[in-house]
Nucleic acid binder design. Sequence first.
DNA 1: CGCAGATTTGAATGCAATCAACACTGGTGG
DNA 2: CCACCAGTGTTGATTGCATTCAAATCTGCG
Lengths: 261, 261
Amino acid sequence: MRGSYIRSHEGDRLCRALDLLEPLGPAERAALTNLPLRCRTLAPGEYIERQGDARGDCCFVLEGLLCRSKILPHGQRQILSFYYPGDLAGIEMMRLRYNDYNILTLSSCRVAYVSHAAMEQLIGAYPVLAAAFWKQTLVEGAVHREWIIGIGRRTARERFAHLVCEMFVRMKMLGLAPANRFPAPLTQTDIADALGLSLVHVNRTLGELRRGGLIDFRRQTLQVINWGELRDLAGFDPHYLQIRCPFPEKFGSVSSTITSV
Amino acid sequence: MRGSYIRSHEGDRLCRALDLLEPLGPAERAALTNLPLRCRTLAPGEYIERQGDARGDCCFVLEGLLCRSKILPHGQRQILSFYYPGDLAGIEMMRLRYNDYNILTLSSCRVAYVSHAAMEQLIGAYPVLAAAFWKQTLVEGAVHREWIIGIGRRTARERFAHLVCEMFVRMKMLGLAPANRFPAPLTQTDIADALGLSLVHVNRTLGELRRGGLIDFRRQTLQVINWGELRDLAGFDPHYLQIRCPFPEKFGSVSSTITSV
DNA sequence: CGCAGATTTGAATGCAATCAACACTGGTGG
DNA sequence: CCACCAGTGTTGATTGCATTCAAATCTGCG
């Protein structure tokens, strides 16, 4: 099952995402685009990894949204994180023996599989790339912590708002949120499982945020309407995402643009 | 403020904890014990790092219990993780620019500070140690995920039971839980902030577990009385801790010993 | 059209938070 | 030695946020 080759704009996006973590030189860019990749297009709901399975290859996200989830013995589901374009899913399986989580597509996705062997070689040869991957893991940890805080101590409205802020900022960084709109290929059930809430309550909370003029969510698209209020409600501070570019400044102006509407 | 030298049995414990992640050779052990460390004894409630501060040195835990926490704007506190003897606290600050969390002692602690420079050198020279530290971060991520699941989807009793299981297994691994008793220098307020519950509810839940004959918790000491039931209640599966030694097997026998009492 | 999945709304229930008061503990100082 | 005090632990009563159960749309799609 040999996949197609990576497309040029997909390679660009991959480089861009990693460059946000660590500045890449031309050598690293070349090494990335010359990686032996197996590219594939996956339908929504396809699994990259399954809980309990033997560890599989690493997987670059080129396009679309994936998530990591776990099903509990009583059947409840918890979504643990999202994977955005440029993220490298399943990298921890290079070092760990057991895999307790599912990684699966939420939307139609373009992904690029890389063998562990190729990754080891890449990391060994390019310390900057090793640093970038290592840093991505650390940011993932920081995001985990922010989720713990949200689920542990924030109300449903704050929690929902915080998730929207996080997705918005990440998509914006990737240039995928023009006019403060970005694709969010999630059902309300998915959101509930990410926020640790029930489907019904997510629906009601969404209604409140919508009626409050903070966001809109229709046809798999999230729109941030009142960034200032949304951010304040969530208590959102983007520091934990460790954005390298001067994003907060740039973002302030966007924010004021929005709130002045 | 130059600290005292590391004591021999403390160096042993440090090596032992890392050896549980990756098997260390004599060279790595020697390198570890020859690290330029500044050892100190800290009182309960002292900070290693504060949220918003500039990044400080790394810090090995030699003895005692620390936690990572965050205070929210409205004053609520969430504890995000615990640091046990052998853990390296604050290692992520070698790579990240912003620090949004507190790291502080819960009990009286022995710690050993290491400069980032010394760590970089160590990691550069000993790939096995680099792998061990990297793996520790990955395990920390897995623990975060398990906490998300707990806070998001488990009831108060299950959540509490799961935390006790996790602490028990980690302490047992370190040889610090003889007779299924181990030091847990926590107030019920701390437990509440770790589990995302209120103090009052933690107190009631603890009462239930105590009356149910699952655990006891007195004078800063946790005792696992009925491991089988506790594990089943929590739905605890130690895989996520990535224990290298044949712990689950060994543990089964301990379990049966206990349940047969 | 018919159907499955997703969204929306209503009503009742329940788990955990909050408010409040009291008991226990260890440490300090008169 | 005892009074005092702050921190911690315990229990009762009330409130409320979120869940659960149930049913009615809505939507996309073969």
